[in-house]
Every structure is written in C-alpha cells, then in structure tokens.
Design a protein around this nucleic acid. Structure first.
Length: 1027
RNA sequence: GCCAAGGUGGCGGAACGGUAUACGCGCAGGUCUCAAAAACCUGUGAGGAUAAUACCUCAUGAGGGUUCGAAUCCCUCUCUUGGCACCA
C-alpha cells in the first residue's frame, strides 16, 4: 500500500524535549564564549521573583517572547547571551515564606529547585552556567559593596524623616512602592512614621534621568511614566511679607508657582498645616521676638480655631483626606501677605489641600484661574478676579467653576502684562519678579530620594557600623577618609586593574569630588537642607559615628535565626541578636554596633545585569565555596549538594575572571554591556527600571563602567489574562505552565502563548485554543515526517506513480515558502509573533492544499506528502525553530540522516553527519556526535529569493465610486513590466487594465448610462472609476 | 481631573489610506470507520433577494469631516484598560 508505506508516528514531545534538553546542555549550545564573541547580543529578560509556589504562565509568556527574539538573533549571526536567575531575596519572597510558615532560607532552597526545574522545561536558550541568585552570598557581597560605594561617594545618607510604613509588611517602603496609599506588595494602607533611615540620593540624578530618557529606545509608556514620576516643574518662588492687620511686617512666606503670570489676580495665600510659620504662629517656635509678636496678634478664639484645625488635619490619614474629595477646609490666621505688584493685602489661610512636601508648602491663591483656588475662595467668600480672557471671549465676573480658565488666553487687569498671551506673560512676570528681588526661578522635581532601609530579615544586611566612641569625638568615616587609606584601598586597586585593562575606559579613574558635583544639576527634594547640594561631605552631622564595613570583610552574612518575623515596633529581627550586631569599630576598635536593617529588594535587582556575564568571578582562595566561604544552604546535606552543583557550573568560567576583588570583569563588561535588548513588564516603570538607571549612572560617574544607561532597548510585553481577568490566586484562574507542557509539550505552549495576540498587548488564555495549537504542531510534525520519509522510501518502495512525490517543491509551494520567510523574519524583528505564526500556518495550509491537489481524492491527506523539497522543509523548520525549538531540532536532525546521501548537500555538512545508519525511526543523539555547530538553532536564518515573490498575474480590484464591483486578473505589471511601462508612460498599462475592467459585466452594469469623470489607477492593486 | 494605549464576527485577533473580517478557536454539514476518536473536505459577519448561481444593501464604539476611496487621517463624544493625581 503506497499510502501506508510510511507509518506516521505521533510527535512524542516528552521524549524529544528531554533528549534535546540534555544534548543542548552537554554540547554547551547556549553557553557563548563571552570573551571571544565577535558579535555580542545580550538578550536579557527580567528575572523572576519566586514569591509563589512555582512559575506562573505569565512568566513563561514573558520569557518565551524574549527567547524567540534571542533565538532569532542567534540565527541571524549574533553571539547571543541569554541568562536567567532568581530575585529571591527580599520582601516578596519573605512574605510568601511567612505566609506558609517556612523559614525564608528553606523556602529559597525549595523555590530555587522548583523554579530552575520549571525554567529548564520551557525551551528557552538560557545559559545555565551563569545564573544569579540575589540571596547567594557571592552575589549580595557585591550588593553590599554597592551600598558602601554609595556611602563613600556621598550618595547615601542617614536621616530621620516621615516615611511610609506598611503595617502589613511591618517595614518602611520607598515612595515608588506605595500605590494609591497602599503597599505595592500586600495592598495594606500605608501609614506615615517618623523614622531614621538610610536613603540613596537618586534625586541627584533627577535631571540626567529625565534628559537621557528622551533618547532611550524604550517602550513609550515606560518613558512617559518615568518622566511623569521625575516630575520636573519650572516655576518661581515668590516671597511675600507677612503683615498684621495694621500693616506691621512680622515675617515672610515664600510660595512656589508655575503660573506667576496670573499674579495680579491673587487674592489670598494658603499654607500647609505642616508649614513652619504655622508652628511659630502657635507659639511652639523658639520663643524669639517674632514668635511672641505673632502670638500676640492672634486673638484667643482664632488661636483655638487654628489649633483645632491643625490637630484635625494632622490626624487625618491620606485616605481620609482623599475621601473628602475636593471639598475645601481651612482656617484664617489673622495675618496678611502683601502682593508687591499692586500692594494688595492677601489674607493668609491654613488648609490641608496644600501639600507640605511639594514646592514650599505655601500657595498663592488665584481663584479666577485655578480650580482648587476657586473652590477655596467660594468656601471662604474671598474675592475672585479675572486676569485672563480665554478664546470664548467671556469677560464677565467669574462666578461658576466652568469659567475658571487655566490653560490659555490673553492677560487683562494685569498692569504691564495686559494684552500678552499667557505663555509670554509667564516669562515677563518671572523677569519682573527677579528684577524686583521678590522672586527667584526654581526647578522642582517629584522624584524623591530612595529609601533603602527595611526592618526585615530576608535581605542583605546593610553593611554599616555605628561607633559610639567615635560619635562622641564627632568622628565618622568622612573624618578619616583622607588619612585612613584603609577604606580606600579596595577602590584604588580597582582603578589599577582598570588602568591595566587592554580596553580603555573613557573615565577609568574614580572622579574627584568636585568633578562629580558638577554632574549633579538639580536635587531639590532631599529631606534635609544640608543634603541639597547633591553630595555629602565630612561635615555631614548625620554621618557622625558611622563607618562602612571594610570591603575586605564583605559579605556581612545574613545569619540563620529563628525569630525572623518582623515586628510592629520598626525594629528589625536582627536587632535582637547580639552575636550579629556586636562588632569592633573598624576605625578605633571600640565596641560598636552593626546596622540591623536590611536593604530594599530593589537594590538587589538594580545591578544584576552587570553580574550575569561575569558570573564565575571567584577569588582564587575561595574556589569551590564561593567568596566569603559561606552559604545559606549549608544547613542541610541536600541543600549543600544542590548548591555545589550550581557553583560547579559557574566555576567553568572562573579562569577568565580577575582576582575576584571586583563584581564584574571589565573586559567582558565592556564587550557585553549595556544590555542590547531588555524585555519585561511595564509595571516596573518607576521601580526597578528607574533604580537600575540610577545605579548605572552612579557607577559610571565613579569610573567603574563606561556607559551610563543600562539597557539600550527596553521592550514592554503585555500580560496574559484568563477569562478577561488578570490571573491571580484569589480569582482562581492561575494557569500552571507545567500542566500544559505535560499535556501538549513546551513547543505547543510557546506557540500558543505567542499566538494569543500582539506580544506588547498580552493575550487571553483559553484551553480550547491551546488544543488547536497542539493540533497544528502535530500537523507540522506529520508534514515534515511524511516528506522526509518520502525521500527515504523512494528507493525501496518505487511507487508506480511517482509524479506526486517528486522531491521538488511545486511553484506554488516555493512561492508560499518565500513569502513566509520574508514575513516571518520581519515579524519577529518587530515582535509580531502572532502574525508570524499565522504566516507559517498559511504556508502549511498551502502545502496541504498542494498535496491534496496532486493526489487522487481518496489519498488526500494533510501531509502534503512529497510536495516539498528537502531544502525547503529545512528552511521552514528553521523559521519555526525559535518558536518550537524541540520539535524542529528533532526533525532537523532526522533530516540529516535522510540527507546523508543527498548529492545536493554541501560536502562539509556530510562529514559532520557520520555514523548515520539511515534509520527513520527516532534515533538517540548518542548514535552520532551532536555538537553545537550542527544544531538547527545555530543555522543561518533562511533567505528569501525575491524572484519567488514576483507574481505572473495579479488580481486587481475594480471599483466604481469607491465601491468594489469586481476583481480582474491581469498579467503582472509589477515590478519588471511596470518599470518598462513607466519608461513608456503609465497610460499604456492603465489603458490595458481599464479595458479589461470595462469588459467585466459587473462593472459595466454600474457604468451604464453614466459618464466617467475620472479613473484612479493604483498599479497592482486597484482601479477606480469615478462617475 | 491629566497622560498613555485601546474599542473590528459567537470568541482571540488580521489589515493600519486601496478587495474589511487573514490566521486560529467555536459551530454546522460531509469523507473515512461496525462505531467513536483522530485526520481530512466544505461552509460560517448581518440582512435582503433567488429554484440556484448571479446580485443588492448594511456593518470596524457613536456622530461629523478630509479623500476618487477611511477600521486606518482630523474633530467632537462615549466606553474599557493601564499610569499619575488637591503637584500650585
């Protein structure tokens, strides 16, 4: 039976996946030689934080989209490095460990095993010899090192400030980690607490973060989010004298405004309840004469009212304030400000709609042209004056909120500004105010310093030591910076090693303090005035008694303790452990105390991309155990053995590393960074993606790296949803990838996930559609196997009717193939994976149809058996390889065996396929030597031949008045014919087409009895008669 | 409130000035089979008309506009999803 001559086996994904996973790893397919790579491409994806039991299908979606791109780039000739790791240190992992009542160290051990197992199965080209785990002492040693550098370079300070406290996580949070007044991790409403904490001066880079963002090749929404978060505003601080009822000046108040143009319309001034003047007003000042006079001015009733109001508003939570909506409350102080422009007395109020931490905490009220001011004025019956006439020409008194024009218009009632448009008036007024000495232009930012401390257990201990003895003497690390070279020793040795580097860094020496200072343009939002210059110095009072842990003593190992649960008191768990915190002062040797807070988890991930290519940077003396000779996992035998595996893997690269005194290899780093392509979720716009940029800029300015942006390109993928909702455990719609990989195979799941929709928009997961993709995978398998087998069977079976399995693609198939090659390549480059897959489906459909056409009806099958040449099948498999790495490798390798005797094959390739026995049954890799060079995944991406894209005939749509009436098939006039035609003038071609079009009965019917006014002709596409 | 991205068949989505609904799912009918599954074939936006083909009309959130021609470009509105938010 010809038809059954070759029995078709099903695609056995489990066997195939296991086989190739093993073969790939053994052949080091995915481990590029980083030192030798000529064409490096660092394809990075955000590493997962293993907070739940296992890998989420959302992770797989993200990784697969990134991996397809990496595989494509590799086939396009790049040396692709695609690393993976775990962001397992920090609150997210700890919270989960607490929830299930497991020690975070044990939990990390378990999740590492689970995650790495799962990640092995998704078919990504991860380099498993260079993983990064943020809780590994080999890694956090350098996280602590980074903290120390921040301190030494004046970008880290300790201060008491009002901070966000999460009662759920029982720790402080950075501003970026507070979403709608709630904790980013647990969702509890955050409280404000006064605590002394460590901060990183990210504000020193506010301007650079903003300016660089405009030219970054990043997802637009992320850039916009960062720009909004940095929140640069240019305005002016105007200082007003504060006077009594009788006109006696008692003080001054400075207001920040971006709209001084409307200043002639100012009718009041409002202070935030926290404003310093309020303190003076209530007699809690320093007892100076001013404060006494102020108190005297206010009569008893007013003072009581002010007290009540302040008490009430300070008690209000942010939530309660928000609940009040835009309803304005407030209280009059009894004082006035004087507007120098028109000598008008402006009543001075206190209201909590004014924010203490924005601008100066004082606002000039212009109710005619600011909606909030209008609401306040209405509430307190304050004058409203019009100083702007908008487009609508309304000049009537402003009595409705709709009349409050904020955006545009022409100035009136404004002295020298009359007749000017707003935009111009702003500058004129600023000039005027500065000339008069009443105001000073200022730039403000929304960005605030990065709060680093966490009163938690599961993180890198902050490597700082406080010495009471030194504090008594007013000494700190800064005091000894110049003389005690000990602290700088490490730093110096780096400069030397960089200087000896074969590559030259543009800025290889750490810069001088003044040089660096020049780079800090704006830094207006520090918690303390003495920090606002951007860098800290010896005189910084907060630093007294503080020393960084000497770099040679790093890491400060996180000990295993049993009382690791966070407390409500803001004291970290480590603070209960004398063994941990008792330490000798690195300077004077007296009894001192370690910092017991740990650092923010976002510090762990702020530099991991720098570490990946340099994994294996072991100190010679530490070989085998890792730097510091400590491991979290020493506690159990199982853990220890597992970790050794990991360490052993990483040690493969150890010989290339320098002496381990630096977190990354300068040469490797120069070759591989910045990251060429970074893929991840947009939810980290102002968190990880902002912090990483800041850290990179700082390292650059210290001379440690030669680039100041970490990620050349950032691509934001969409989210996978199910049943129209985000996947979450509470909704019970979480999909576990393992289950689907088990059922359908990794290839089918990868393809399915990418097919659900545009990669940047996410997709909707549905089981039935998943099955559909599984069917397609089987179909491709059958198609390939049948065609491959046909070749093999030719000799022995000698079918009587050989025309239908001729081993040459028909013209139709050839055309379809080359169309697909073009489209798939272009689509992958733009990450349009869904349409790339659709294009391959169309190709398969065409092959099927062609197979059916060439066979007798009763022998139709979907195999398209014998209609595709082997070279063409190979090209198709290569196209599919980034999406379905396992199946395509299996088929590709089977083809090699079939093709051994193919004379069309290049000689060189034949030799690489020795030991073949021609068996078409699945063969194990061990039967011949699989080396990375023969893998499908390193084959060059197929090239399409334009000659196959040219059509002999083309379908042209015929329209009458823009309505489709018919389509006609004409001889192709593109592009060869057209070129000729253009030389001769278009009219000939058009005339021919027009004649044919008119010949159509359907068209003629619509043209009948009408006169054709005009004919629009688009060659190759359309002809339109306008009647 | 502001900023950004979106609204296309029963569903996920194609097309992004030039034949709307590619591709897939689902559904219906058929082939094969003792039967089922698998696989394959055919059909499938809505409405009208016809013995049937042909054919006609209407559909891309709503309404206007530009154009020979608009899902695509412009304006107004509306809804959804993200981000920011009493930011002066």
């Amino acid at each position: 039976m010809k038809q059954d001559a070759v029995s078709i086996e099903k695609y056995q994904h489990k066997d195939v996946e296991e086989k190739w996973r093993d073969a790939w790893e053994k052949s080091s397919l995915d481990t590029p030689d980083l030192a030798a790579a000529n064409n490096p491409f660092y394809n990075l994806m955000m590493f997962p934080y293993p907070s739940a039991e296992g890998l989420h299908v959302g992770n797989m979606y993200a990784f697969t989209g990134s991996d397809i791109y990496g595989r494509f780039k590799r086939m396009a000739g790049y040396d692709v490095f695609e690393p993976i790791g775990l962001d397992g240190f920090g609150i997210h992992s700890e919270n989960f460990a607490l929830k299930i009542g497991r020690h975070p160290m044990d939990h990390a051990k378990i999740t590492e095993k689970n995650y790495y197992n799962q990640l092995h199965n998704i078919g990504a080209m991860f380099d498993w010899t260079r993983t990064v785990e943020t809780y590994d002492p080999d890694y956090y040693r350098w996280t602590q090192w980074l903290f120390v550098q921040m301190f030494k370079h004046g970008l880290c300070y300790r201060g008491k400030a009002e901070v966000n406290w999460c009662p759920g996580c029982k720790t402080v949070l950075a501003d970026e980690q507070v979403i709608d007044n709630s904790c980013e991790r647990c969702g509890k409403t955050v409280e404000k607490r006064q605590l002394e904490q460590w901060f990183f001066k990210i504000t020193a880079y506010a301007e650079k973060l903003l300016q660089n963002s405009f030219s970054l090749d990043w997802a637009k929404k992320v850039k916009v989010a960062q720009q909004a978060w940095i929140g640069k505003k240019e305005g002016i601080n105007i200082t007003y004298p504060v006077v009594t009822d009788s006109g006696e000046k008692v003080s001054e108040v400075t207001c920040f405004t971006t709209r001084p143009d409307t200043n002639f319309g100012a009718t009041f001034v409002v202070l935030a309840p926290e404003h310093p003047f309020v303190g003076e007003l209530l007699g809690s000042g320093d007892g100076s004469s001013l404060s006494k006079r102020v108190t005297k001015q206010v009569n008893a009733v007013t003072t009581a009212q002010i007290h009540d109001y302040i008490d009430a508003s300070l008690r209000k939570t942010a939530q309660e304030r928000a609940a009040e909506g835009r309803k304005k409350t407030g209280v009059f102080t009894g004082f006035y400000c004087v507007n120098g422009l028109n000598d008008k007395k402006l009543p001075l109020y206190i209201s909590d709609f004014v924010l203490a931490d924005f601008g100066t905490g004082a606002v000039i009220g212009v109710p005619g042209h600011d909606k909030r001011d209008y609401e306040f004025a209405m509430q307190f019956d304050i004058d409203i004056e019009r100083v702007v006439i908008a487009k609508d020409g309304d000049v009537s008194p402003i009595s409705r909120i709709e009349q409050v024009q904020e955006e545009e218009g022409i100035m009136v009632n404004s002295g020298f500004l009359n007749g000017l448009p707003i935009s111009e008036a702003i500058h004129r007024m600023m000039d005027h105010l500065e000339k008069k000495g009443w105001g000073k232009r200022v730039t403000t930012y929304h960005l605030r310093d990065w709060l680093i401390s966490r009163q938690r257990y599961w993180g890198p201990p902050i490597p700082m030591i406080f010495c009471e003895a030194c504090a008594q003497k007013g000494q700190s690390w800064f005091t000894h910076r110049e003389t005690a070279e000990v602290a700088n020793e490490n730093l110096d040795s780096i400069s030397v090693s960089l200087a000896e580097d074969a590559f030259s860094y543009p800025s290889r020496q750490p810069r001088s303090q003044s040089e660096i200072e020049q780079n800090f343009i704006g830094s207006p939002r520090s918690h303390f005035d003495d920090l606002s210059i951007g860098l800290l110095d010896n005189s910084a009072h907060w630093a007294v008694g503080w020393y960084p842990v000497p770099e040679s003593d790093l890491p400060v190992v996180l000990p295993r303790i049993d009382d690791y649960k966070p407390g409500d008191d803001g004291v970290a768990p480590l603070a209960k452990h004398k063994d941990f915190y008792n330490v000798a002062c690195p300077q004077c040797g007296s009894a001192a105390r370690r910092e017991t807070d740990v650092s923010d988890t976002f510090l762990d991930s702020s530099w991991y991309f720098l570490r990946y290519p340099s994994v294996g940077n072991y100190h010679e003396g530490d070989a085998g155990t890792g730097a510091g000779s400590v491991s979290h996992f020493e506690m159990s035998a199982e853990g220890a053995s597992q970790r050794e595996d990991r360490t052993a893997r990483k040690m493969r690269h150890a010989t290339k590393a320098p002496d381990g005194s630096f977190p990354w290899d300068p040469q490797i780093t120069r070759r591989w960074l910045p990251v060429h392509m970074y893929t991840g979720g947009a939810e980290h716009s102002v968190l990880h993606l902002m912090y990483s940029r800041f850290v990179t800029m700082a390292l650059h300015d210290w001379g440690y790296i030669d680039f100041d942006e970490p990620f050349s390109t950032f691509y934001a993928h969409g989210l996978v949803i199910k049943d129209g909702a985000k996947m979450s455990k509470s909704k019970g719609n979480v999909v576990n990838p393992d289950e689907y990989i088990g059922l359908y195979g990794a290839d089918a799941l990868r393809l399915y996930l990418m097919f659900t929709g545009p990669y940047d928009q996410g997709g909707d997961f549905r089981d039935s559609a998943m099955e559909g993709m599984s069917r397609w995978v089987q179909k491709v398998w059958r198609l390939a196997i049948k065609n491959i087998s046909t070749y093999h069977a030719l000799d022995s079976l000698a079918p009587s009717d050989s025309s239908w399995h001729s081993p040459v693609s028909s013209a139709t198939v050839k055309k379809a193939l080359h169309r697909a090659i073009k489209k798939v390549g272009e689509d992958i480059e733009h990450r349009r994976y869904n349409t790339a897959i659709a294009a391959m489906m169309e190709l398969v459909n065409t092959i099927g149809e062609e197979g059916a056409r060439l066979q007798t009806p009763e022998r139709r099958s979907d195999g398209g058996q014998g209609v595709m040449g082997l070279d063409d099948i190979r090209d198709f498999l290569k196209m599919l390889a980034p999406f379905a790495p396992y199946m395509t490798e299996e088929l590709f390798q089977r083809m090699k065996s079939t093709m051994t005797n193919d004379p069309a094959l290049p000689a060189g390739r034949q030799t690489s396929m020795s030991n073949e026995n021609g068996d078409t049954k699945a063969k194990t890799v061990s039967q011949y030597t699989f080396t990375k060079s023969i893998s499908i995944h390193v084959q060059p991406w197929p090239v399409y031949d334009p000659k196959f894209l040219e059509e002999e005939t083309v379908e042209i749509a015929v329209q009458v008045n823009g309505k489709l009436r018919d389509t006609i098939v004409v001889k192709s006039h593109l592009p060869a014919m057209l070129r000729k035609a253009l030389q001769a003038g278009m009219s000939k071609v058009q005339g021919d087409v027009e004649k044919e079009a008119r010949a159509s009965e359907r068209v003629a019917r619509h043209l009948e009895g009408k006169s054709v006014k005009k004919v629009i002709f688009i060659p190759g596409k359309i002809i339109n008669f306008v009647v």
